[in-house]
Every structure is written in C-alpha cells, then in structure tokens.
Simulated assay, not measured.
Amino acid sequence: MTAPLVEVRDLTKTFDVSAPWLNRVIERRPRQWVHAVDGVGFEIPKGQTLALVGESGCGKSTVARLLVGLHAPTRGEVRIDGQPLHATLVTPQGQALRRRLQMIFQDPYASLNPRWTVADIVGEPLLEHGLLTGRAALRERAAELLTQVGLAGADLDRFPHQFSGGQRQRVSIARALATSPEFLVCDEPTSALDVSVQAQVLNLMKDLQRERGLTYLFISHNLAVVRHVSDRVGVMYLGRLVEVADKRTLFAQPRHPYTRMLLDAIPDIRMSGRARTPVQGEVPDALNPPAGCAFNPRCPHANARCRAERPVLTEVDGVRVACHAVEERRI
C-alpha cells in the first residue's frame, strides 16, 4: 500500500454556542458546546481519493477546514507527509507546507471575488507565496493554468459574473493548482452545478489527479459522485466516522445500518427488486446527542448495549466499522 500523505488521529473540534454571558446569568443557563467533529481518524495514501459522505450537519465541512488549517482542532492531530499540520503552520516552515495543500470550495458563486479579474484571482496564490513576480510572468502562468482546466488564456481579463457555474468552478480549480499542491480538499465542489456540468468538472479533477499525482479528500452527500471519484469512502454521522471501507466493498456490502440506509435511499433505476429500507427518523440534536451509539434512535438493530455504550471504530472483515450489531454478528 502506498505510504499515507495525510494522517488524521483522534481529530476533534468543539464549538462554543452558548448564549451571551449576561443572558446566561439572568436565565441561569449553562454554557453549551457542539462536538462538530468527535474523534475522527483516517489515512489517505498518496495519489488516492478518500470521500467523506453523510447527511447535512454531520461534520464533513468542519473536517475539511481542519485539514487545511482554517480551524484549529480542539484535540487530535493532522499530519501531512509526517509533519504536524497545525504546529508547523505557525513556524517559518508553515508557508512551504501551506503551498502543498489547497481547498476547492462548495459554491463557485461565493468563493470568487466579484471585483477581481480572473488574472487577479488565479495569480493571487502566486503572489502570496512569492512564486512569481512581475505582471507579465503572472499573466503567463495564469493563462497556462486556465488552459489546463479547459478555459482559454483570453479569459484572463473577464470577471466571475461573466462565466457560467461550471466555468467558475474551473477558475477555482485553476486557483487551487497555482501553487502546485499535492493535497486538495474538495468541499462538495459540484453540488451547486447542473448534473451535466458536474460530470465535466469531476472528469477534469480525475484527469488532473492522474497527470499530477494529486491526493484528494472529497466531501459530498451525493453517493453517485462518490462512487465515480473515490478509492475509499468514510461515512460520517453526527461528528463521528461510522464506517470506512474500499469503495467497491462499501457499495456492494455495506456493514453499518446507517450506510445501508443511505444506499437504500438511492433510486433503484435497474428495478432489481432488492428489499430496501428508506431512511427513517431525523438526525438528533447535536447539542443533546443520545447516549450510547448516536444512531440508535433510528437503527432497527439497536439493543440495550447500543443505547448505553458508544461503539468504537474497529476492523471487522477488512472494514472499519463502529457498530455493536456488526461486531456481535447480529447483522
């Protein structure tokens, strides 16, 4: 197996969502905390793609921001090629490490400055990291990057509002590639695009991965997209990983009841007649999660142990899964 470029150990992020101090004093309310990410751990080998899936609010985007240093973890550690990410970013060596990782954001309409031309947008990382100086050199490099993502060098003087959604996302990808990164964090990069445009952007990302040997963390709630782009899949629920498996294994033989429910929610185009269980219930309140396994109120296999004891991610038949029912061979 290829050596991991990205290693995540016990990653935890807690947000203080308490009311203002005076309100708490008057109303005698305690402070409140949300465990957006709770003890997540995984590895991504060089040149491969790990996809994180789950319902909205499960902590996927917070993991993405932790992995590029936009948030500092409450606990745990992220290592990039053996270097501790957050400890290194505050040192003189942090600039070099930051060049090796970039992020593609979800909304191409909000992630580009509407007052800047494409030349300014794509050239900004080159200036910030001191990779190029001089207007002519910057424009030449920006034009090369645009060409690599399927746009024309003549687009340099256009503004974001003059592009379609798919073209804007290509500009975002060109900006992310400006520093020649090794690791790209993609936070639902196609969710705001039409289906036909999604396919074009995804194929572009796969081509760039083959050409440059890029490593991806791909955040999505679209399982069809995940099946197309990923090598391994991690399923998140209420801030925790509940299953991590090879893509083919996960789609063919999902182990965790939540993973099964997610896959059963996909329309059965082939009309195979397979028994399907629709997703039941609602995601619990993150401020007051249930005791034991967080999924137990929605799980058809929950028992007394599930309601009292929180499962840990353990390997069962080559798949990492956090489920008492799987561990006890009840399902």
Rank of each mutant, 00 (worst) to 15 (best):
I219H: 01
Y258T: 13
R212C: 08
D231V: 03
R248H: 15
D231G: 03
K247T: 15
V225N: 12
T249G: 10
Y258D: 13
V197D: 11
R260Q: 15
G234A: 13
A224T: 10
L208K: 02
S230K: 00
L214Y: 01
V233M: 02
V235Q: 08
L238W: 04
V201N: 09
R227H: 09
R255V: 12
Q253P: 05
K206Y: 02
L263M: 09
M236L: 14
H221A: 06
V197I: 15
R212Y: 12
N222S: 12
I219K: 00
L263A: 10
L214K: 00
D231K: 00
R227A: 10
V233F: 04
H256N: 14
R260F: 10
D231Q: 11
V226S: 03
H228L: 11
L241Y: 00
Q209C: 03
A265H: 08
V201D: 05
V226C: 03
V229N: 00
Y216W: 01
V226R: 01
N222H: 10
L217A: 08
A265T: 13
N222D: 15
S220D: 09
R240H: 03
H228F: 13
L250I: 09
R232P: 05
P254H: 08
G239H: 02
M261Y: 04
H228E: 14
A265M: 14
L204V: 05
P254F: 11
S196V: 05
D231R: 01
D246K: 04
A245K: 08
R240G: 09
L208Q: 06
A252F: 07
Q209I: 05
L263I: 08
T249K: 11
L214V: 01
R248V: 12
S230M: 02
P257K: 07
A245N: 11
M236A: 09
E211H: 03
M236S: 05
L204A: 10
A224V: 07
A265N: 09
A245L: 06
Y216R: 07
V226M: 04
V225F: 05
A252W: 09
N203A: 13
R210P: 01
L208Y: 02
A252S: 15
